[in-house]
Amino acid sequence: MDRIPILKLGGALIVTIQVDMHDRLALALEEDLTAMIARTGARGVLIEISALEIVDSFIGRMLVSIAAVSRVLDAETVVAGMRPAVAITLVELGLELTGIKTALNVERGMALIQARLSKDEEDGYGGDRDRHEG
């Protein structure tokens, strides 16, 4: 079964969804991502969906649940690059993804995560974990 690769960049994890999401793939992604956050101690998750053309209520719910799980593990989820048609569909389905940050593209999404990371650093969190990793 193919899986969606998860990239680690500093304190953030990046996922780009390039294929049509089917339900099993979505569930596998949620599992992998949760494990990866726990292992690396990432503080931000960027999900890039500019190639995603079709969404259903399941995929929408999955995005919400990934965000919820990430929040429990103290990582912030940013969804970047959503297409207009996808946004309209999700709103019509009543899934407004409250609690998830959104960004127009990867660059802005990373800026959001970077802001969170540097704030954490100022507050004195997160530095330890990074050292363990290194």
Binding site: P84, V86, E96, T102, N105
Partner: peptide
């Protein structure tokens, strides 16, 4: 509100 929600999903 729908329009606002859709725009928010796009990151605006």
């Amino acid at each position: 509100l729908k329009t606002v929600a859709a725009a928010r999903l796009m990151g605006a």
